[in-house]
Amino acid sequence: MDELKSMQQDLSSIRNLMERSNKFISLSGLSGILAGIYALGGAVYSYFILYYPNSPFGYRIKYVNDVTILNKLIIAAAVVLLLSISSAILLSYKKAAKNGESLLNKNSKILFISFCVPLFSGGLFTLVLLFRGYLGIVAPATLLFYGLALINASNATLSEIKGLGYLQISLGLISALLPGYGLLLWATGFGVIHIIYGALMYQKYDK
């Protein structure tokens, strides 16, 4: 019977290695929660710039094409992005160290590149259109490209990331149809959904 047990161990170690050898599995769920919080912070800040004291469902009191306001919003978005990416890297580094995986291996590089290429091409595309005056493009385009980046990266990491990608793409398309609700849908996608997803991943993998 001992032999049988060792065979079962063999099979499970094979399965485990096949999974681990081509994926970076130390992605931190906690960093998803943090990214959501940063995004909500950014959204609240933008709300105060654009709508306050009206409700976010109501009319904007400021025009976004005012250059100083536009700059403030872009800086806020850049801060959210930088904080999110650096938290993800830092927390994944810690988790990888715990798992005995190194942060800079073949799989993490593939993950990073497959995530960054769609994300930054989408980001630059959005910026170009923004400066040409297509202000309504921001929420749908950032959600769409972020979703595509997630789906592209999902093969190189935990498979749940794919679902998150589909959700972001759906929200992006919805926000393209509902131009007035860009900020709200953006806050839902980057904020609320990140926090929920991050918490689920944390429950499943980090504990």
Partner: peptide
């Protein structure tokens, strides 16, 4: 097992993965 699902794998990466 590793080489079944990866096109190729480096010596050092294998060493790290298999400990």
């Amino acid at each position: 097992s590793v080489l079944m699902v990866n096109e190729h794998y480096e010596f050092n990466a294998l060493k790290e993965l298999l400990q």
